[in-house]
C-alpha cells in the first residue's frame, strides 16, 4: 500500500503545478477556490493545506501573481493570476505532456489499441 501512495506522490509531483497554472489561465481565482477544485479531485492533492505551499512557490518563481481583494462575505482574499512566464511554461508543458503521455501509453500498454 505504501508503494501505491508513493506512486501517486511521484506522479503528482511535477504535474500538479501545471494543473494550478491551468486553473487560473482564464480567470483569477483565490486560494480557497483553487483548493476546493483540487479537493474535488481526489487523485491530485493529498490535502488542501499542501496547495498553499505550492501556490507560494509558483508565486516566488514568477509564474503566478497575487493580489489581495476585499470579499463580499468574509475576510480579504488573495487572488492568483497567471503571468506571461507562467503562460509560456504552461504551453511548454502541454507540448511535452502530449508526447510524454503517448510514449508512456505505448510502452505501458494503456494506449487503448
Amino acid at each position: 500500500m505504501a508503494e501505491v501512495a508513493q506512486l501517486s506522490t511521484g506522479l503528482r509531483r511535477g504535474t500538479l503545478e501545471f494543473c494550478v497554472l491551468a486553473m487560473v489561465e482564464h480567470e483569477d481565482r483565490y486560494g480557497t477556490e483553487i483548493v476546493r477544485c483540487f479537493g474535488a479531485e481526489t487523485n491530485l492533492a493529498a490535502s488542501e493545506g499542501t496547495i498553499y505551499p505550492l501556490l507560494s512557490r509558483l508565486r516566488r518563481v514568477g509564474w503566478l501573481d497575487s493580489k489581495w481583494s476585499e470579499s463580499p462575505s468574509g475576510p480579504p482574499r488573495r487572488y492568483y493570476a497567471l503571468t506571461d512566464s507562467g503562460r509560456s511554461a504552461l504551453e511548454h508543458f502541454r507540448t511535452e505532456w502530449v508526447s510524454f503521455r503517448q510514449t508512456v501509453d505505448r510502452l505501458v500498454g494503456t494506449g487503448g489499441e
Binding site: 486560494g31 483548493v35 488542501e48 493545506g49 498553499y52 468574509g74 475576510p75 482574499r77 488573495r78
Partner: peptide
Amino acid sequence: DLEAHIANERA
C-alpha cells in the same frame, strides 16, 4: 494563507 482559508470556510 491557512488562516484566510479557514476564515473563508467558516464564513
